[in-house]
């Protein structure tokens, strides 16, 4: 009897103390701060411990949370820029406009969609426009030197792409005896990186896009070791995205600005393709070497090229079953080298 009374007393004291503390903190904290603290975001989400499978709802909430964070960061940057260039300057207005336009979406995968991309090796001229468009579109931090698309220049002879004699740092293209093979994430059906990740920070979405949760990645780089295509990139330094070049169209699993020490990779411009657009690399390709579409849609471009020209994948022996195909399209007419003083 006396024991239980003691417990009761203890509990009462605890309650009293709790109410008292709450009162003090309520007086100390302004109402708006308190309201923002009461946003329906659980600690686990902030810590990056979401449920095993993101539901649409948790993802949307996370996108909302992330948008707030980005806007906070962004407005700080805007102030800096406005101080540096002057309040009335073009840069200040531009930065402010971009910040306000920031939209972090969480568009879920559409039912029955299976994205795929194909690249015409006969057409590619190795100009690297896709690689740089990708950097701009995906808010890749310029200071970390990350480029998701790498363009390999490989000898044309031989039936397979000879990686060992391929070059990345060519300065003149296209050459007659070379093929150009842009490589980025293959969005494998059987992705070794997803298998390797110890914390499920990366997974394959129902529409075939392999994504990374930047809030969850622990930076162990096992996925980079497991990837046969060198498609994964690490933020070795603190990323410093430029507000003046910020792409306001963002997806929580795609091109939101990254943090230090997390892995990132191509997402087939998830912020565009999930909403009916096409990836930036496809749009920007000056020779139309890239084709993107839904494998399940008989009218899609990807079906057309796969049915018409057939396709191959890189490193089939790795057993990854890439969804990125290469094909030899209609015989290419080599670009005329003279007379093209074009930039």
């Amino acid at each position: 009897m006396s024991g239980s009374r003691r417990v009761d007393e203890k509990r009462r004291n605890l309650l009293k103390a709790g109410v008292f503390a709450a009162g003090i903190s309520f007086i100390g904290v302004s109402r708006s701060t308190l309201m923002s603290m009461l946003k329906p975001v659980s600690l686990s989400e902030v810590l990056g411990v979401p449920p095993r499978r993101e539901t649409e709802e948790t993802l949307a909430r996370k996108a909302e949370w992330k948008e707030e964070r980005i806007k906070e960061w962004c407005s700080r940057k805007v102030e800096e820029i406005c101080r540096e260039y002057g309040e009335g300057s073009e840069e200040c207005a531009e930065a402010r406009r971009r910040c306000e336009a920031v939209k972090v979406k969480a568009t879920p995968a559409r039912q029955g969609v299976a994205f795929a991309m194909a690249l015409d090796v006969n057409k590619c001229i190795g100009c690297r426009r896709c690689a740089y468009a990708c950097v701009m579109e995906n808010n890749v931090a310029r200071n970390n030197g990350i480029e998701w698309i790498k363009v390999l220049e490989a000898p044309r002879e031989g039936e397979a792409i000879d990686f060992l004699h391929a070059k990345l740092d060519y300065t003149d293209a296209p050459k007659e005896d070379m093929v150009y093979v842009p490589v980025a994430c293959m969005h494998c059906e059987n992705p070794p990186c997803v298998m390797a990740c110890p914390v499920r920070a990366t997974w394959r979405e129902p529409d075939g896009i392999v994504v990374v949760d930047y809030e969850r990645c622990i930076g162990c780089r096992y996925c980079m070791t497991a990837c046969p295509y060198g498609a994964r990139h690490f933020n070795w330094g603190v990323p410093e995205p430029s507000v003046l070049e910020l792409n306001p169209n963002m997806h929580i699993l795609g091109n939101v600005p990254r943090q230090v020490h997390v892995v990132e990779k191509c997402t087939w411009c998830i912020h565009r393709t999930r909403d009916g657009g096409i990836p930036a690399c496809v749009e920007v390709c000056p020779v139309g070497a890239r084709v993107f579409g839904d494998l399940n849609d008989p009218e899609s471009p990807i079906r057309r090229v796969l049915e018409e020209y057939g396709a191959f994948v890189l490193k089939p022996e790795a057993g990854t079953r890439p969804r990125f195909f290469y094909f030899f399209g209609p015989a290419r007419t080599p670009a005329a080298k003279e007379g093209g003083g074009e930039k």
Binding site: C127, G145, L168, G237, P334, A336, G339, E342
Partner: peptide, 17 residues
């Protein structure tokens, strides 16, 4: 003359600093 004119090549890729 339907062959596309040659295009410029953009700078070499970069890696981590």
């Amino acid at each position: 003359d339907p062959t596309m004119p040659a295009l410029s090549i953009l700078p070499e890729p970069s890696d981590r600093p």
